[in-house]
Design a protein around this nucleic acid. Sequence first.
RNA 1: UCCCUUGUAGCUCAGUCGGCAGAGCAACGGACUGUUAAUCCGUGUGUCGGUGGUUCGAGCCCACCCGGGGGAGCCA
Length: 484
Amino acid sequence: MPVAAGWRTVPSSHIITESIMSEWLSIKQARQSESIGQTVEVRGWVRTRRDSKGGFSFIEVNDGSCFGNLQIVADGSLPNYQTEIVTLSVGSSVVITGEIKASVGQGQATEMAASVVRVTGIASATDYPLQKKQHTFEKLREWAHLRPRTNTFGAVARVRNRLSYATHQFFQNDGFLYVHTPIITASDCEGAGQMFRVTTLPIDRLPMSNGKVDMSQDFFGKASYLTVSGQLEGETYATALGKIYTFGPTFRAENSNTSRHLSEFWMIEPEMAFYEIADNMTLAERYLKYMIQDVLSHCAEDMDFFEKRIQPGVTAALQLVLDKPFTRMTYTEAVEILMGCGEKFEYPVEWGIDLQAEHERFITEKHVQGPVILYNYPKQIKSFYMRLNDDGKTVAAMDVLVPGVGEIIGGSQREERLDVLTERMVESGLKTEDYWWYLDLRRFGTVPHAGFGLGLERMVQYTTGMANIRDVIPFPRSPGNCDF
RNA sequence: UCCCUUGUAGCUCAGUCGGCAGAGCAACGGACUGUUAAUCCGUGUGUCGGUGGUUCGAGCCCACCCGGGGGAGCCA
């Protein structure tokens, strides 16, 4: 057990003379019945205070270690009862020493009988924005610096943390190597939408040459951008070290205003040498199931909250994902189902079109009622690096669709044949010389390989049932919004 | 970017036909022998998103601008 190392809010010169009074427990520990009988210290923020008829007060304290609060019973005989305790407002920070006891009241196993209540910081009740009631998520976005103090955002933060941890566990246990791909890149990779420009040029007086901006004078001597994917760089390490994964921030300058898109988000991209499309699907399914299992077993209290207050049925849906193998379906099969289902779609279905949200939703929510892996898409609607199938018209691409969120994973087997890849690049209007290093992977010891990308925020949405992606990342960046 | 919708007290919202700006919660003051969003009594709360216009008179009507939400496209 960690021992409080003389932590105080007094000036540091005073700390040395203070003796260690009692053990510092997290609220999570203090709420467990094994802690009954101990005299300990807890530190956190006041969630609510209720004054009782008997001349004493209940203070609920939370420190983020778990969903629940610890109920503190502060007796009227405490020296600072009238001066401080009865004025304790929501959001104030406290350090409280007392004995953990079995709770007399309903709703909690333990409570603390306070012997010392120290107030480290008052949150003025008239100024503190968070009230002891529900706020809309839209309002809480305006207070993104304070929203982690609410039940919902605390729970989201813990689930997000657990999903990140589970990601590393899963890949590390499987022998994958964590590779850091660059954030700043000079290659307009994949042509995957608009990129953020990175520059040190003065925007009010750009150096011009022949009527165009002279990029040779920029920091890197050429145009550079924030990455939209670490995939191409990831492939270089996979084709040397076998199985790798990246996990980092990704940027898209698309003017997307939806509940499923961010301008800055976190992506996990495994890339595996000697993997074919079927191996890729198996890995994606194992990975998703591992994360879900991990969250269900380690964030039970938070998941109870999401089940009761955010999206009833979310835990049963996740449990179902664990129990059932993912349905695998070719694009062609999906199109046949959509054309024969009798459903009226806004966008008509025919072979060759990119599937619309309504089509994907029908497949995953109505037809399969669970996760589905669609694969072998028409080559026209997919990227140049995806491996051309023998039929000459489809590529070995795969999307994992889940109910509610839609596409959670996109991936493919990569084109390992130099001649086919070069031809596809030319078709796509890309300059092969810009990708000389990428093509080198096919020139020197080329191997079949595959990989995929998973958007962490969409995974957090899926596991928590949170409706808007802006509420599953601490500080959301979207068009027109870069506050905090 | 397009379509729809919305902006009024700290928060959630009502505001009729264009005629004095109004509820709940929070806050504040008080009461109450163990409370769980405690309860009860009392008190106050305003750049009606902004700018301009119509009108004797605009929260309400008109124009433009800004922000929020939902849907679509793009994708993860």
